[in-house]
Design a protein around this nucleic acid. Structure first.
Length: 472
RNA sequence: GGUGCGGUGGCGAAGAGGCGAACGCGACGGUCUGCAAAGCCGUUAUUCGAGGGUUCGAGUCCCUCCCGCACCUCCA
């Protein structure tokens, strides 16, 4: 298994330190709004990473994805609506879980919230450790991390301090005057009256953004270094850089062995923003009549380190691609003859090998899907030629099940089909009526029934062995 | 000012030194069909932003240039 490590800017071999279980942490949402499709590109990529580690590389996974449920935005939002913070954030946490299920994401082993008492305590302990080692200072009730105390600061983001100061000078932090150095960041933030406050033994305050991830990762995954830390590309700096600073200065050990970052999603070639009207949530996409499985396919079909441009035409293309896959699987039902063919098994094994190799090579989903579709064409062709028998079908299905263990689109689609719409018995009744009409050569009536079913979301295909149907 | 990414057919997207540039969508022709649909076959990039260079050989390495974009303490 190879992955691109942001720390070294190279693809590296990856395996968990203990050889069996990957202990991984990914930064989740700040829960002040429902996540948008850009957020979910990250979580879908993470899901593909997770599934590849499990089903291709054969590791076990312990994955932690947090919720940032206390920060300026969540506090402001809760105040605006006159709700307790936890009640306010709970809505978006529930929405996140709902959207994850809709997109077929495997649940994480842990979804900690920053405000859980155990996590607050872990943050307090880490801050205390940093204070003891001389990496901090206090100012106006807040505790800051002193960047000058860490010579290797900036390694992940490859910061150039000289250049950074020259150009970024125009954007100094609003509360810079409280800091000794503009680059220092807050570990534990002084609270204003009315803001939620904790005191885990370091004085009253609330978590700085970065400390929560360091503390929760090490609390829930155990000793540093953890195997893998992931997140959106925009988190490289400052968030992950600062996580490294805190964790490594506090523990004296490497924080994470592998850093994986997912590129952003663009919408119609632009950054998503509410003012441009290109800001979509999962329910928005479904409300426009698209399936979640289609969105999942589209968002995972490009490489995770490339920017991906979301368009509605892309959704339509993704829909057709999935259909090619599912149509093929449906075709297997009609295979007759009990023979099995060694050359079929061999072809399937080659594709499976190619798929796994592509996924293990830094999650090359495009190449992996290429293998799938090449196999689809080869087998369709064999079916046409009558050189696929029942004896081959189980092996073929097993391979496609394996592909979908990682891709996760076909199983999701099946779940979508099972909920709502015409019942199978109803469809069969229509088909029987239409067969009658066709037997009478009353093609007008037959076409009318086909149209009716189409309007109900069912597509018919007449073949030599009868009529097949599928849902739109 | 600094750091970094990308420009591959009508659209999306792999490929990162080696003979005919995957795969998906679309289009056209053929086959099949009562008509469709699906499938299959064929056609659709003498060429990979432009120009130089290295090499027996370059989308793939080097240089210059042109475009587009991200990040530099809100951000998946």
């Amino acid at each position: 298994m190879r992955l691109y490590n942001t720390l070294t800017r190279q693809r590296e071999d990856f395996a968990p330190a203990d050889g069996t279980t990957v202990r991984m942490y990914a930064c989740g949402l700040t829960v002040y709004a429902r996540g948008h499709i850009g957020n979910f590109r990250t979580f879908i990529s993470l899901d593909v990473l997770r599934r590849t580690l499990k089903y291709v590389a054969g590791f076990q996974v312990k994955q932690v994805v947090n919720f940032t449920d206390v920060d300026d935005k969540t506090i402001a939002g809760a105040q605006r609506e006159g709700l307790p913070l936890a009640e306010y954030t709970e809505r978006y946490i529930a929405a996140f879980h709902e959207d994850c299920a809709t997109l077929g994401l495997e649940p994480s082993e842990e979804n900690p919230r920053a405000t859980d008492p155990g996590n607050i305590q872990a943050m307090g302990d880490m801050v205390a450790a940093l204070e003891q080692k001389g990496h901090t200072y206090r100012s106006d009730g807040s505790i800051y991390f002193k960047i000058a105390s860490m010579p290797t600061y900036g390694r992940l983001a490859r910061l150039d301090h000289e250049g950074m100061q020259a150009g970024a000078g125009a954007r100094v932090d609003a509360d810079e005057y409280e800091k000794e150095d503009a680059r220092d960041f807050v570990l534990w933030k002084a609270t204003k009256p009315g803001e939620p406050t904790w005191d885990p033994g370091i004085g009253p305050g609330r978590p700085g953004w970065h400390i929560e991830c360091s503390a929760m990762a090490l609390r829930l995954l155990g000793e540093a270094p953890i195997d893998l830390h992931a997140g959106g590309i925009d988190l490289v700096f400052p968030h992950h850089e600062n996580e490294i600073a805190q964790s490594e200065c506090a523990t004296g050990k490497t924080f994470a062995r592998m850093w994986v970052h997912f590129e952003h999603l663009l919408v119609e070639n632009q950054k998503m923003s509410k003012s441009l009207g290109n800001f979509f949530t999962i329910p928005d996409v479904i409300g426009k009549g698209y399936r979640a499985s289609t969105l999942r396919y589209l968002l995972l079909s490009a490489h995770y380190r490339s920017r991906l441009n979301f368009t509605w035409s892309g959704m339509a293309q993704a829909e057709e691609a999935i259909r090619r896959w599912t149509d093929f699987l449906a075709r297997l039902d009609a295979v007759t003859g009990s023979a099995s063919h060694p050359e079929v098994a061999e072809r399937v094994a080659t594709a499976r090998q190619g798929f796994d190799t592509a996924m293990a090579d830094d999650l090359n989903t495009s190449a992996a899907l290429g293998e799938v579709f090449e196999l689809v064409r080869a087998l369709n062709s064999q079916i046409d030629a009558g050189t696929v028998g029942q004896g081959d079908v189980a092996g073929i299905r097993a391979a496609f099940a394996h592909f979908d263990d990682v891709i996760g689109v076909v199983s999701l689609r099946a779940k979508e089909d099972a909920s709502g719409g015409l019942s199978e018995a109803d469809v069969e009744r229509y088909i029987t009526d239409r067969q009658e009409a066709r037997r009478r050569r009353d093609f007008a009536a037959a076409d009318r029934i086909r149209q009716e079913l189409l309007a109900l979301g069912v597509i018919l295909e007449d073949g030599p062995h009868g009529t097949r149907w599928k849902r739109k």
